[in-house]
């Protein structure tokens, strides 16, 4: 067992984990943060995407021990209380989700994308989401949602 201290969604969490424990399993099963989903075992699908120190990371592709000392944000820590993040709002507004299974990762990847590029073109949005697979939406409304969120965030910061 290895001891880790990790800030998750603003709360410092302590754990003793087997080195082989995947970060996503630690989040889901040890902390009960089941909002983050698992969709594959080859790090292709991106459903498990969280932010580590503000950047998107596939939490199935990281060991819990590697998160020691770092700050993690999951879909469950994105909203400010009852106030949703603009990306969450835009996904609802634009019908950017159907079954919702890829949604946690898709939203977190979108947040990362917009933090790096606040005014992306459609092509930049599409390329920026290349690591997240969705089987329901055909991506059309996801792309629309990210563009909508970008406009919203730009307006808010202007």
């Amino acid at each position: 067992m290895t001891h880790i201290d990790v800030t998750v969604d603003g709360i410092t969490r302590h754990g003793d984990v087997e080195p082989r424990r995947l970060l996503v399993h630690w989040l889901r099963e040890d902390l009960g943060l089941v909002g983050t989903t698992v969709g594959c075992d080859t790090s292709n699908c991106g459903a498990c995407t969280v932010l580590v120190d503000g950047r998107s990371v596939k939490s199935c592709n990281m060991l819990a021990v590697q998160a020691d000392g770092h700050e993690i944000t999951t879909i469950q820590g994105l909203a400010d209380g009852d106030e949703w993040h603009p990306v969450q709002k835009a996904f609802k507004e634009c019908h950017g989700l159907q079954c919702g299974y890829c949604t946690p990762g898709m939203v977190m990847a979108s947040v990362d994308l917009l933090s790096e590029n606040p005014d992306p073109t459609e092509e930049e949005i599409r390329n920026g989401l290349e690591g997240n697979l969705c089987r329901c939406t055909g991506y059309h409304n996801i792309v629309k949602a990210v563009a909508t969120a970008a406009a919203e965030m730009k307006g808010a910061s202007a």
Partner: peptide
């Protein structure tokens, strides 16, 4: 109409089988 389902799906308050413990 915007979907009723989205609130839980967008905030991680979901009920996938794998979440049932």
């Amino acid at each position: 109409i915007k979907r009723k389902e989205d609130a839980r799906l967008l905030t991680g308050k979901t009920n996938w089988v794998d979440n049932i413990q």
